[in-house]
Design a protein around this nucleic acid. Structure first.
Length: 347
DNA sequence: AAAACTATCCGCCAGA
DNA sequence: CGTCTGGCGGATAGTT
């Protein structure tokens, strides 16, 4: 099996965070991940300043992109609308060679300049969305999503959305279980399918009495109850129609979709931390039946509940036969990293 | 696995 | 006016 070549391109003045996110995901193998992980290289300007604190010395030339399977452009320098010419040319060449292009933050400007975004949907840091749309009219800019997957071209919003996109790519390449495993190790919340789901509309939201800050906590704390969408509407003091409207606008998915994903997340925790049976967990997560839980769990997590438990349950250090997955359980005392998920996973 | 049955979603629209 | 809300009904998604 050929190892997937990932090349990260950096230019002078590039922000640290975006670079770091990609390096964390693609640049280091961790226990439990497939062994030949990615073949990760950094290319760019020699001595480019990174984040204002470091200089990049050990970098390859842009020509590395020509043989890459995936090219990542974390951002551009201070003037996104005037991208680095050599970089743009290299990206164009890589694209014509069939490479998958990935941008984080203002990296989308480089992709756009290379023509890779023409006629496509794309996103970038919300602060630059207008500029991107104005500079490249043929790009359909959507500032309201974390990332957009156009198969061969993937763009993401700023900062941590880049991490979400990187994990999404791992999910595409290696499956949900591997992606979730990596997310756990990075102590970041796992996500649903990224392809069509567009969650988190407002990058810079206000803290009013919106659904996200009032209704969602109310529900998550009662996730063991078989709440219906009508129940949520009653709690929010609005009609189901209005709830559907506001929910979509504030949370990005429909009430039921969100509800089901929360139940599955809770089921993940119970699978990790208890030895309860599937039927019991279905009951404890407000899911109607074990069959229903299995179906949704499989769809969202990517593996069946029992397989998930075998991999992650901290109580039963199941003898992993083949050496592939070295005891993926969390360190003792940490109570499994998923303990931090409920708060973070409010998509 | 498929079918019958429910619940939910969302465009449209009128009324506040 | 422009904005918000709740009801309706067909299409979909979810459940048994």
């Amino acid at each position: 099996v050929k190892v997937h070549d990932v090349v990260l391109a950096i230019t002078d003045g590039i922000p640290l965070f975006e670079v770091a996110a990609a390096c964390e995901v693609f640049g280091s193998w961790r226990p439990g991940l497939p062994d030949p992980w990615y073949n990760f290289k950094v290319c760019g300007d020699y001595n480019a300043r990174v984040g204002g604190w470091f200089r990049a010395e050990s970098v390859h030339g842009f020509s590395e992109m020509l043989t890459a399977d995936t090219v990542i452009i974390p951002a551009c320098g201070a003037a996104p609308d005037k991208p680095h010419t050599a970089l743009v040319n290299a990206v164009r060449a890589a694209y014509e060679n069939g490479a998958r292009l990935v941008s984080i933050c203002t990296g989308a400007f480089v992709l756009a300049a290379a023509g890779a975004l023409d006629g496509r949907r794309a996103t970038t840091h919300w602060k630059y969305a207008n500029m991107l749309a104005a500079t490249y009219p043929r790009v359909h800019v959507d500032p309201n999503v974390l990332y957009i997957d156009e198969e061969t071209v993937l763009t993401s919003a700023g900062k941590s959305a880049g991490l979400d996109l990187c994990l999404h790519i791992v999910r595409v390449d290696h499956g949900a279980a591997v992606a979730n495993n990596l997310a756990r190790r990075l102590v970041t919340p796992p996500h649903r399918d990224g392809g069509q789901a567009q969650f988190i509309p407002a990058p810079v939201g206000e803290e009013k009495d919106n659904i996200a800050s009032t209704l969602l906590p109310w529900v998550t704390s009662r996730i063991c109850n078989p709440l219906t969408v009508t129940d949520l509407a009653r709690q929010a003091n609005m009609s189901t129609r209005n709830l559907a409207r506001h929910f979509r606008a504030n949370v990005g998915v429909t009430p039921l979709q969100w509800l089901v994903s929360q139940r599955v997340f809770r089921a993940q925790e119970l699978l990790e931390m208890t030895d309860h049976g599937i039927e019991q967990i279905a009951d404890e997560t407000g899911m109607g039946s074990g069959a229903t839980l299995r179906r949704h769990f499989n769809r969202i997590v990517g593996v069946p509940p029992d397989a998930y438990r075998r991999t992650f349950n901290a109580r039963t250090p199941s003898a992993e036969s083949a050496g592939a997955t070295k005891k993926a359980a969390a360190p003792a005392g940490a109570g499994t990293a998923s303990a931090v998920w409920p708060e973070l996973s409010r998509l």
